[in-house]
């Protein structure tokens, strides 16, 4: 019988540690498929963050680094500046990228660092126990916003992709979502474009991936996807905010 679906070569054959219903697994798979399809596995170097996806260096079978919290873009800068022909990507959560690592992501984009960022936005700090993230929605309850995020106290959620897209160094910025199969397909296209932008040497590329966190949202997996669709999409519009003419 013809095989129509298989594990990407770039993804190691081992069980993920992620919670049931977490969309990290889907995002990992999409990145691995893109690396396979672009035939850059041997050239790929992953930079893992601190957060739930800290162990992504185990799952991506390419060479990898584990960076300190928020600093993956600085580490990727160091790698890419020494090895400009390698395909370097960071995989970061919203605490890592949009809070503690804001300086590093903004300035990597401003310098037009030629690597790709996969940014998982699930509107919460998951690994440390469901605290408020910079991307937590107004009114959303977390362990540190037990009465819901109050803009007077905590300000409003940050739209990173829009923010980064206005920088000259950013070549590609898009937001996608993993809440249903059609969007998963679109997400893969965006991730592929981001890697293509890097391979073409056009500059900084980022794909923000809206993801679910059933455990810390306190919802069963399917309801979590519905919550994402109903609550995150209105605040975090999907689409490409910046793309270079050359590739797309």
């Amino acid at each position: 019988m013809k095989k129509v679906f298989e594990r990407p070569k770039s993804l190691k054959d081992m069980p993920f540690h992620y919670c049931p219903g977490c969309t990290h697994g889907i995002a990992h798979r999409l990145v691995a498929e893109v690396i396979d399809e672009l035939q850059v596995f041997e050239k790929a170097i992953a930079v893992a963050p601190v957060g739930c996806s800290v162990f992504c260096y185990e799952y991506f079978d390419c060479d990898a680094y584990q960076a300190s919290h928020g600093r993956a873009p600085a580490v990727a800068t160091g790698i890419k500046r020494v090895l400009p022909d390698r395909v370097v990507f960071t995989y970061q959560g919203d605490g890592d990228l949009a809070a503690i690592g804001t300086g590093e992501i903004v300035h990597s984009a401003a310098r037009g660092e030629n690597f790709t960022v996969i940014f998982i936005n699930n509107a919460i700090y998951a690994m440390t126990g469901g605290q408020m993230a910079p991307t937590t929605l107004l009114g959303q309850k977390t362990t540190t916003t037990p009465f819901g995020r109050d803009h007077k106290l905590n300000g409003s959620p940050v739209r990173m992709s829009e923010m980064l897209s206005v920088l000259d160094g950013t070549a590609y910025a898009a937001r996608v979502s993993l809440h249903n199969p059609a969007n998963v397909t679109r997400a893969k296209k965006a991730i592929k474009k981001a890697f293509e932008v890097q391979i073409a040497g056009l500059g900084f590329s980022i794909v923000e991936v809206l993801s679910s966190c059933p455990t810390n949202w306190g919802l069963p997996p399917l309801k979590a996807l519905k919550w994402l669709e109903d609550n995150m999409l209105p605040y975090y519009p999907l689409g490409e905010f910046k793309k270079p003419a050359e590739v797309i």
């Binding site: 680094y65 960076a67 300190s68 600085a74 580490v75 020494v82 090895l83 300035h107």
Partner: peptide, 20 residues
């Protein structure tokens, strides 16, 4: 020679380059 945005970034760029 690359000027970083902070010492925090500098040392992590060093981390990235040293690893290669």
């Amino acid at each position: 020679y690359l000027q970083a945005e902070s010492e925090v970034a500098s040392i992590n760029m060093v981390f990235g380059a040293a690893g290669t």
